[in-house]
Amino acid sequence: MSAPAASAVRNAAAAVCDPEFPGITIEDLGVLEDVRVGPGGVVSVDLLPTFLGCPALDVIAGDVEAAVATVPGVGDVSVRYLTAPAWTPERITAKGRDKLAAEFTVAIRRRDELSCPVCTSTAVEDVSPFGPTACRAVAYCPECRNPIEVMRR
């Protein structure tokens, strides 16, 4: 079988969604670092964990492996997590930012500024550095009175 196209392999990996943010891909989140296709269709994928203790790491790696394996010509697939460079919320793409805000009421602090994903007010108040997941803190918008979550670095 002929070698798989590198772009097709990358697209397959890039389309995998975060299990806790359906519709938001690992590419949107900046988790997908590198995809390499070697001789014999051997594929290696490098991912960056948002947090080392994230319970979704194995699930994401498994989903990436399964997605890449469906591309014709792909042989062995290996997925690994790198500890450098460190993932930061700046890695989230513009598309990812918009989707997180519009669909999940999750904000990203940019240049120390935080705007409310519901009403765009910048008067957002930090409430707790701990939210439902390791990667998110809790804040509150006094303008529209919605609790919101903020991606942590």
């Binding site: 701990f130 939210g131 439902p132 997941t133 390791a134 809790v138």
Partner: peptide, 9 residues
């Protein structure tokens, strides 16, 4: 952490 976080929100 999820459940306690949900309760908090």
């Amino acid at each position: 952490q999820d459940e306690i976080g949900h309760a908090h929100l």
